[in-house]
């Protein structure tokens, strides 16, 4: 709060406890929240790699080979391994939001959360399998 802030006369001063900058490191559920939010950094990081891939693809066969060799750099493999864990975390937490966002009722009874989230996982599996099929099918 700025010291110059003007108060009305007799206006009650708000009492707010100061929150430490590291408030999220104190409790596992808070840390989990922070890690979930940080997954977005790895999402953006992958988009940058994808843009570099498109750039290499535009550059011709040699440039593309160079990109594929660059991906083998141990540091990049480590980064991608970490990214993979973070985007998995993002995906699971995102799919599990569905039952929190909507209450599905069947014959007046609320469906259990697992059943509401399940279609997400089925679709996820199908999309992933299709991508693997498209990218590993030779010719």
């Amino acid at each position: 709060m700025k010291p110059s802030t003007a108060y009305r006369q007799y206006h009650p001063k708000w009492y707010r406890t100061r929150v430490s900058t590291l408030w999220w490191s104190r409790k596992w559920s808070y840390l989990k929240f922070m890690l979930r939010e940080l997954s977005s950094v790895f999402v953006a990081c992958y988009v940058v790699i994808l843009l570099l891939q498109l750039h290499a693809l535009r550059g011709g066969p040699d440039a593309y080979q160079g990109f594929q060799d660059w991906l083998k750099d141990p540091w990049l493999v480590i980064l991608n391994g970490v990214s993979f864990l973070f985007v998995l975390f993002h995906a699971v937490t995102w799919f599990n939001l569905t039952p929190k966002a909507m209450a599905v009722r069947l014959r007046g009874k609320r469906l259990p959360n697992v059943l509401v989230a399940a279609p997400n996982y089925v679709a996820w599996l199908a999309v992933s399998a299709l991508v693997v099929f498209l990218l590993t099918r030779q010719g």
Binding site: Y46, V87, S128, T136
Partner: peptide, 30 residues
């Protein structure tokens, strides 16, 4: 991101560079 990134990062970040799976070459990617 939830639907596509896990599989893409798994393939391009781990499976292809580490030789677990054969990556599509330049012509196939194009």
């Amino acid at each position: 991101a939830a639907f596509l990134l896990p599989v893409l990062i798994f393939l391009y970040g781990l499976a292809f560079p580490l030789g677990w799976l054969q990556p599509p070459d330049y012509e196939r990617t194009l």
